[in-house]
Design a protein around this nucleic acid. Structure first.
Ligand SMILES: [Mn+2]
Ligand SMILES: [Mn+2]
Ligand SMILES: [Zn+2]
Ligand SMILES: [Zn+2]
Lengths: 140, 140
DNA sequence: GTTGATTTTGAATTTCATTTTCACTATAAT
DNA sequence: ATTATAGTGAAAATGAAATTCAAAATCAAC
């Protein structure tokens, strides 16, 4: 029976300190189900504790990524986004270029074909990115 | 019989001026078959004419994109890359995260499945990005 | 070929997301 | 409580990309 993967445990295992700021940022981030930009999360954090700085939000998000509790994404709008890893399933994204709506999907047949392509070119694939950009039904 | 799409024609059609710098930058870019960072193209341009500036390389690349003669790519290393549009075929990329080798591929079955996914979520897809990251056979 | 309005150039500056610095503070082991 | 160590946040630095502006180049009209 292995220990639950929590932010607190991660910090302890790494010899890092638990702080109010880290807890606050991590809580607000993890309990939401969104693709946050740093700015967005910072604004939310400010509401519950205006003394927490931008740097700490940045730093905590990086720690969450290291802990495997967050994923970093680039959707091409110039802002890095982070999403909580709720289920540990890989997924890809459909992105509305008008309203920013993000839909997640996973298609095993696509993933399989990707592996086929990689194999044909003698690559060992460690990661991939599939993003479909367009207009959602509300924006169309 | 329609006029050939050249950079010169594009500039004329838009009422823009043809300059030595634009010609030089466009020539060096278009005759290579590479995914250039601006820095890389700038270095190549410097060799043939050291008086051409960085800004002009940037500006010319954007013009080439507008003219449909170049495509802008983000491979996640922090540098925007541009590739000449030789044939007007869409393609995706396999990228070695060790040596930077880039292999192009196109898989119609993947594209088809992508359309299926988009349709299921009532999106009209205008663009997509599929990148496979890993190790090429030399780096493995 | 000269003119002259207009565009382009390139060095320098600015922008803006992100990272780093550093004096101060908080944490946690002893 | 003491103390070593790590964290905080305001401010400064960074770096890729965009923009500024005085000087230079282009080109259509003379
Ligand atoms: Mn997601
Ligand atoms: Mn390519
Ligand atoms: Zn939309
Ligand atoms: Zn390689």
């Amino acid at each position: 029976m292995s220990r639950e993967i929590t932010f607190g445990n991660y910090l302890q295992d790494k010899g890092l300190k638990g702080t109010q700021q880290r807890d606050e940022v991590a809580d607000l981030f993890l309990k939401a189900d969104r693709h946050f930009s740093v700015e967005e999360l910072y604004r939310r954090v400010q509401k519950s504790d205006p003394r927490i700085g931008f740097s700490t939000v940045y730093r905590t998000l990086k720690l969450l990524v290291e802990a495997g509790l967050a994923t970093e994404r680039q959707f091409g709008d110039g802002f890095t986004r982070f999403e909580p890893v709720h289920r540990e399933e890989h997924h890809d994204h459909l992105i509305c270029i008008k309203c920013g709506k993000i839909v997640e999907f996973k298609d095993d047949r696509i993933e399989e074909l990707q592996n086929g392509v990689a194999g044909k070119h003698n690559f060992r694939v460690t990661d991939h990115k599939l993003e479909l950009y367009g207009y959602c039904n509300r924006c169309e």
